[in-house]
Design a protein around this nucleic acid. Structure first.
Length: 820
RNA sequence: GCGGACGUGGCGGAAUUGGCAGACGCGCUAGACUUAGGAUCUAGUGGACGACCUCCGUGGGGGUUCAAAUCCCCCCGUCCGCACCA
């Protein structure tokens, strides 16, 4: 072995070795299991630093758990369907598959060069037929269970991607992928009924203690459960408007009703009215606006009277019906009973259009505030038989009254909408449905799966779905009647592919989505690691799909991810690295310059996993320097400990210099074990290993140190480093005489007794200010400490002429003397 | 507006069961080795003071306590998510 750290040489050597021995292959066995999963990547072409960070965190955990005796499942695969492949196909006149598989090959090599301990035999890609067959099968099962439906409605359309998008994929009114402003279109699309699971998705969050509060809060917010009352306002003999409200107590304060311009009754309400033209112009104006402008809080409230009236079900009073931009068509019923006296939005609108304001809830001990809505609790007035009631009780009482008279009912509403899963693109799993002239919508027979993507297609820049250019694909015979049918040309949202992938890692049978026994052994994912950007999208869809699979008896657990770690972003110059900003640090270049171990060590050391990490060229230098320090240390020590067998050394017969090393070793073992196993603080684990190395550098002459202790110390140092810098640890482990891989060894034990120094420094305080420090026996009692403190010359001098009021002694820490 | 996180040296960050603030790393300063060193090793490095003593110091203000970065109250600021959801 060279005295110089040559990372190129050793990284190549061990990579070949691990490949040859199939080092990370795992199968179910008698040991306790640990399923460690990092979010699989989209094969965009190259790994970025975010990947390196994500996968380094996971790899440390997987290797650590393995050394701890767990049977660790640590797989990797590809989220391989998606639009960039199709764009590349258009640009380079190639096929999306070609581009995708080439990227996968390149990225797989990168992952291997970083020493990530994946069981590569479990690798798959979601774009391969043997995977998407089961995505399609899932779709059919959802159809059977009534969880799929097709419906025409106003949907989000991305003009650049030329496809519809789910609500979750619209961020600030723009496409989550390409940032193009999203427009609205009335289209017939496929939906998954995620709203059927809203309550379960919400309630289960309380049973996920291993998830960050932030992610749970975001999901709660997104689901947006609210309890209220649907109230019917008659508009003519046959028809009524349903309004959803959480404030049924204010029903007597309603002075008008407002509809979203897209409400289904609008047409009838304005027909042949004097206001018809004005209304039509208004509707056109509002619908032309994009969602973001229209629904921004800052937007001016605008509205127009329809010419029609609605009847308040309890008072019988007729109130005008208005259209307004501030009512959301897709939430609740799209109609709102307006109570300007008790809702600030209605108040603003009413003031602007001179609509009446009628107070019905009054504060108990203070006057009504002026010139604004009163939204807090109080006592009902002007409310007929409900007068004098507390408003909270009135909500129930009025809802009951309405229910009794069949004029309304209690209702739970969600902000969550059903998941729009169809996409007008080629590179996705085809939706396995047919349109038959006789039978209507017919599902593909299970035995006919997978519905393969055709290859006789054209990729044109005009945005047309390429699947529509394949005649062979589109024309089929109906499995029901044998007649002519047309195949659905939409494909599934790629989030469907990634919502069940963790199950497919547990086993990949040809005839089943996964093997139940294997799934039972491996599930749940014990630790899931990925970016917080998936807090809602991927993480909620996965919970939903898995919940359905659980109900079907396929997934053994209702919630798929036991513990979730959302790692922070990698920043350069304070902002997220991105191609468009040009602030990219390329992992390949870093590996070339410093080696993979240095890259891993730096991203793990520079910040705690869940916090953002600022890239630093000086910082990675530091990591490199540390590895070199370890290298030189072990290189120098190897001859000293050559032939010395490993043994856990006791305290007996050690010199004080020996003891210093032994104490530091056990202290470090304890700290690293706790940081890795309990706190998951990789940065502090590394810093304590650095301290141990520093301690060993303090030794002037190694020949004076107990050889067995040195052997134990060097071995344990390498074992602790093994999860972080696998190449270097393996090489040095071999160099110090071991025949088997360091990662096959057990995590070292430590002795808390030996981790304590015989003497500790305590501080002596007077009135909380430090006045002296001294070394005392580690096990000195309170009484002994008090005695020692009083005997200190410095303390005695300072206490001259003062009276001691109180003495507080904390063994191992300090003595504080309170003196007057 | 609602929800979540956070505020500590020149920088990244330690210390949160109340008990030595600033571990570890970067940077900086000095020295050693050296033909040379942006290599390596050693020492130092929160601020005020040449040093000693001492005082100040964890966003700001108040409080509890023998003792507060840590607990409580008020305020300021930063980041993230949601936001006219009735």
């Amino acid at each position: 072995m060279s005295d110089r750290y040559n990372f190129e040489l050793i990284e190549k050597k061990w990579q070949v070795e691990w490949e040859k021995t199939n080092a990370h292959r795992t199968k179910p066995n008698h040991k306790p299991k640990f399923y460690c999963l990092e979010m699989f990547p989209y094969p965009s072409g190259k790994l970025h630093m975010g990947h390196v960070r994500n996968y380094s965190i996971g790899d440390v955990l997987a290797r650590y758990k393995t050394m701890q005796g767990f049977n660790v499942l640590h797989p990797m695969g590809w989220d391989a369907f998606g639009l960039p492949a199709e764009n590349a196909a258009i640009q380079h006149h190639t096929h999306p598959a070609k581009w995708t598989f080439a990227n996968m090959d390149r990225m797989r090599d990168q992952l291997k060069s970083l020493a990530f301990s994946y069981d590569w035999q479990r690798e798959y890609a979601t774009c391969k037929p043997d995977y998407y067959k089961w995505t399609q099968w899932l779709f059919l099962k959802f159809w059977e269970r009534g969880l799929v439906y097709r419906k025409e409605q106003l949907v989000n359309w991305c003009p650049s991607c030329a496809t519809v998008l789910a609500n979750e994929q619209v961020v600030d009114g723009a496409c989550e992928r390409c940032s193009t402003k999203v427009t609205r279109k009335n289209l017939e699309q496929w939906f998954f009924k995620i709203t059927d699971y809203a309550d379960r998705l919400l309630n289960n969050l309380d049973n996920l203690p291993g998830w960050p509060e932030k992610v749970k809060a975001m999901q709660r917010n997104w689901i947006g459960r609210s309890e209220g009352t649907v109230i019917k306002f008659q508009v003519n003999e046959k028809e009524y408007l349903e309004c959803f409200t959480t404030r049924a107590d204010t029903l007597f304060g309603v002075t008008y009703v407002v509809l979203a311009p897209e409400h289904h009754l609008v047409e009838k309400l304005i027909k042949d009215k004097a206001e018809e033209q004005k209304c039509r112009a208004f509707i056109e104006e509002v619908l032309a606006q994009d969602e973001i402008d229209r629904l921004s809080t800052e937007a001016e409230k605008k509205g127009v009277f329809t010419g029609s009236y609605a009847t308040n079900p309890l008072t019988g009073e007729k109130v005008p019906i208005w259209l307004a931009n501030y009512v959301v068509g897709s939430y609740g019923t799209g109609a709102v009973m307006a109570v300007p006296a008790h809702d600030s939005r209605d108040y603003a609108f009413a003031s602007q259009y001179n609509l009446p304001i009628k107070y019905v809830v009054f504060p108990e001990n203070e006057p009504l505030p002026e010139n604004c809505a009163y939204e807090a609790d109080g006592i009902l007035k002007n409310s007929d038989t409900f007068n004098g009631m507390k408003n909270r009780e009135a909500i129930k009482a009025i809802t009951e009254e309405l229910t009794k008279r069949k004029l309304g009912h209690f209702q739970v509403n969600y902000r969550l909408r059903d998941w729009l899963i169809s996409r007008q693109r080629y590179w996705g799993a085809p939706i396995p449905m047919l349109y038959c002239d006789h039978c209507g919508i017919v599902p593909v027979d299970e035995k006919d799966l997978p519905v393969l993507l055709p290859t006789d297609v054209e990729f044109k820049a005009n945005g047309e779905n390429p699947l529509k250019t394949s005649a062979k694909f589109q024309s089929v015979t109906c499995p029901k009647c044998g007649g002519k049918a047309r195949r659905e040309s939409d494909t599934m949202d790629t989030f469907v592919d990634s919502s069940w992938y963790y199950l497919r890692y547990t086993s990949q049978p040809e005839d089943k989505i996964c093997d139940l026994e294997e799934a039972k052994y491996w599930m749940n994912v014990d630790q899931y690691i990925g970016g917080v950007e998936h807090a809602i999208l991927h993480l909620m869809y996965s919970r939903f799909i898995n919940m359905v699979l659980y109900d079907m008896g396929i997934s053994p657990k209702e919630e798929p991810f036991e513990n979730l770690l959302t790692q922070g972003m990698v920043l350069l110059g304070g902002t997220k690295m991105s191609k468009s900003k040009g602030n990219i640090v390329d992992p390949d270049e870093m590996i070339k310059a410093y080696g993979a171990d240095t890259c891993r060590l730096f991203v793990l050391f520079a910040a705690p996993p869940e916090r953002d990490l600022e890239w630093s060229d000086a910082g990675i230098e530091g990591a490199y320097r540390f590895i070199n320090r370890v290298w030189r240390l072990v290189y120098e020590l190897a001859p000293v400990i050559a032939g010395v067998p490993y043994k856990e050394v006791s305290r007996d017969g050690l010199s004080s210099d020996d003891r210093k090393i032994q104490q530091k070793l056990h202290e470090t073992l304890a700290k690293v074990t706790e940081d890795l196993g309990v706190k998951f603080q990789l940065n502090t684990a590394i810093s304590s290993i650095m301290e141990l190395v520093n301690e060993l550098y303090q030794v002037k002459d190694y020949s004076t140190i107990n050889k067995e202790l040195l052997r134990q110390t060097v071995d344990n140092l390498l074992l602790m480093l093994a999860p972080f810098i696998p190449f270097v640890a393996s090489e040095l482990w071999e160099y110090t005489g071991h025949k088997t891989d360091v990662h096959k060894a057990s995590w070292p034990n430590y002795d808390t007794e030996l981790a304590l120094a015989e003497e500790v420094e305590i501080v002596l305080q007077i009135n909380g200010k430090i006045k002296d420090r001294l070394l005392v026996p580690q096990d000195a009692t309170k009484e002994e400490l008090e005695q020692i403190a009083k005997e200190s010359d410095k303390i005695q001098a300072l206490l001259e002429g003062r009276t001691i009021r109180k003495i507080i002694a904390v063994p191992g820490k300090l003595v504080n003397i309170v003196a007057g």
